[in-house]
């Protein structure tokens, strides 16, 4: 049996597989399909300081090998999440990563500060890359100096490691990655969705009510692999990789590119059992590609054997 464990700042993972934020709510729905303790970790849906209702519908559209979404950070607010959602997740043996979102640096700080009162989270995923809200979020992810500032402030406001979620909607992702590393980020998660649009031919207008949405699914996997590959060479902090994973071969490819662990998002919608199935099949896949462990495969796609 290969060793699937990975140790990252704040995260002692029994395997490198976790559901991606926004695709798994707070776990209740998927717990009806399998025991959440099987997972390496859980990235829960974004929390903002106050309750947010999100965008009008339609909020999703299928595209070739992927989908567009523009949910708009609908969530009950960080306090309600701490009181009503996290206790359920604490009944499982699985580290929880809280996704922190906001419109201003102060909001990010206040969410991070609020999360100090719970023991239920092991790390923060700092969401500076949601493309679906008009104010905030994404501008912090596209400008290195803003990304650095929000990282520094959230680091100072929280008591758990902070992983910064990077946006692929930038000219040079390496520049942003280095900026947040210097600002004290403990790790990176990448990539968030790519901004896209679908037009309804009959109605002659964008299909999503928000007009634009975030593209996810297998269609974006080559972009994610390329970006992780580049960032891995430029930073020393660990990367949790995501973007279109649907199989164990995809997981291995992310590890080779430089991810230390991976998150699965869109594929949960097609197959609610996907995370559980990939965890079960991963030892076989590692063996197939001659790796003794997950750790053994990390970054091995860079031509050094």
């Amino acid at each position: 049996m290969s060793d699937l464990t990975v140790q990252l700042p704040g995260l002692d993972l029994k395997n490198p597989i976790m559901p991606a934020s926004g695709c798994f709510s707070f776990g209740r729905e998927y717990s009806k399909f399998y025991c959440l303790s099987q997972l390496g970790a859980i990235m829960i849906k974004a929390a903002t300081a106050d309750k947010r209702l999100g965008n009008a519908t339609p909020r999703v559209a299928e595209t070739h090998a992927g989908m567009l979404n523009a949910i708009g950070l609908q969530n009950p607010g960080v306090e309600a999440i701490i009181d009503h959602e996290l206790p359920f997740l604490q009944t499982f043996d699985v580290p929880v990563i809280a996704n922190v979102a906001g419109s201003t640096i102060e909001e990010y700080e206040s969410v991070a500060r609020a999360l100090k009162r719970t023991e239920a989270i092991s790390a923060i995923e700092l969401n500076i890359s949601c493309p679906n809200v008009k104010e905030g979020g994404v501008q912090f992810g596209t400008r290195p100096e803003l990304a650095a500032e929000v990282t520094q402030r959230v680091k100072a406001a929280s008591n758990v490691p902070v992983y910064v979620k990077l946006s692929p909607n930038v000219t040079d992702i390496v520049e942003i990655a280095q900026a947040v590393e210097q600002a004290g980020a403990d790790g990176l998660t990448m990539i968030n969705t790519l901004t896209g649009m679908k037009i309804d031919l009959k109605k002659r207008q964008p299909l999503l009510a928000n007009q634009v949405g975030g593209l996810s699914g297998p269609a974006i996997k080559p972009v994610a692999i390329r970006m992780i590959y580049q960032v891995y060479q430029a930073v020393t902090i660990p990367i949790i990789g995501m973007g279109g994973i649907t199989s164990t071969d995809d997981v291995i490819e992310f590890l080779l590119a430089g991810a230390s662990a991976v998150a699965i998002g869109t594929a949960n919608f097609k197959n609610p059992m996907i995370c559980s199935e990939i965890i079960e099949q991963l030892p076989h896949a590692l063996k197939k590609y001659h790796f003794a462990s997950v750790k053994d495969a990390i970054g091995k796609g860079h031509g050094h054997g």
Binding site: G22, C23, F24, S25, R28, E29, Y30, K32, K45, G54, T57, P58, R59, V60, A61, M67, N69, I71, Q74, N268, F269, P272
Partner: peptide
């Protein structure tokens, strides 16, 4: 009816 994602309540796509 509405365009749905997960169909089980996890993705918040189909709301009213």
């Amino acid at each position: 009816e509405e365009r749905m994602g997960c169909g089980i309540g996890a993705c918040y796509a189909c709301v009213v």
